[in-house]
Design a protein around this nucleic acid. Structure first.
Lengths: 205, 205
DNA sequence: CCTACCGATCGGTAGG
DNA sequence: CCTACCGATCGGTAGG
């Protein structure tokens, strides 16, 4: 009913919330149907099986979050500036897609091995891009950190783990959360950017 | 057989690995039994049900990891030194219990609501202790960071997310991983400690 | 008689 | 697009 949102999209929306709250195995097809007020054959008309739904959600969110460290080939900016932008994009994408990106981590065990492998490849590429920019920025004297791999993974945790504590209805508005989390990442790699942000003359207390 | 390890403990050991790899719903009691070469009544003699097994594992690991910021009442050291020690203990505990602590995050949806609430309380207490020490250290001019809550949660992610990439058989020995991850946490709060570690005269490149 | 365990099978529910 | 229902498999427990 209430045309506007595509039917397939409505299923995904309901499923995202249910998977997020109950996990993959803990969410039954009947729950999804009940949420939408439709019957199972309706859902199976749009999706081959339960896995196709969760994989669609996880893939979307993963692509959105893990392609943020890609830059145009003709982008000539120094590494630390690309990184400053990429990290911000990354955090913003993870905040936006926090429910579905939680899936990619939480329901790992329920995913088909081939799909898990695709997700892993996506993540590995991302961390390779990230580490490359980090190394470049360090060589150019703009960044400071000890271990590139461990630091990159630590940043991944700082961002990816957000789903365990972030609540959209919380006191911190999304943009503010993005700003603070990004600032934390900058600090982890010793990145000092003159961000044109609305901060008063505030010393790093 | 092969006395030595308690029978109950053998069940927990096998279950930990299976739950870690396949999730809660993806692990059947038959799998656990098969791994041990015992029958179900054997397992059900030691555990009331499947939940009791996973909860025992998750609780142990969570307690081990989330009580590392507690200090004796008569410990008079300044906050930043307690923090230096606590963070190291925290990382070490998470590395040791990484399989079971992964459970606490991954199988959340499969846990009984009451148990989830207990875990949440444990975690909230931990972050309260952590944030208190951070604030204290900052007031005393020994630490520097912007947002205590966000930084604390970011550290939690850096540590807690380790289970997604750490492999015990990897090239990085556990002690070395602990050292590097701890160093990353120190950096996140601007903690500079003259750690008596076996580092050569190496400038923070 | 108890404990520790086995072979066999139960009720209930999942995806499809 | 729904009602009705299947084949398969789950966690948990019976008697001995």
């Amino acid at each position: 009913m209430t045309a506007g949102i595509d039917k397939r999209e409505r299923i995904l929306l309901a499923a995202e919330d249910l998977f997020y709250r109950n996990g993959f195995a803990g969410t039954t097809m009947d729950m999804i149907c009940g949420e939408l007020g439709v019957t199972k054959p309706f859902v199976y008309y749009y999706f081959k099986d339960k896995h196709e739904i969760v994989e669609t959600l996880a893939w979307r969110a993963s692509v959105a979050c893990l392609t943020t460290m890609k830059f145009a080939a003709d982008d000539e900016r120094p590494a630390h500036l690309k990184l400053a932008e990429g990290l911000q994009r990354w955090v913003a994408a993870c905040v936006t897609h926090f429910r579905a990106s939680a899936l990619a981590f939480r329901v790992t065990a329920s995913l088909r091995p081939e799909f898990r492998a695709e997700l892993r490849t996506l993540a590995n590429d991302f961390y390779a891009d990230l580490a490359a920019l980090m190394d470049e920025g360090r060589v150019q004297g703009k960044l400071s950190f000890d271990d590139a791999t461990v630091t990159a993974r630590a940043m991944g945790g700082a961002v990816g783990f957000m789903y365990t504590w972030y609540r959209p209805e919380g006191r911190l508005p999304p943009e503010e959360l993005v700003a603070r989390l990004t600032a934390t990442l900058y600090k982890m790699i010793g990145l000092r950017v003159a961000t044109p942000r609305r901060t008063a003359t505030r010393k790093d207390a």
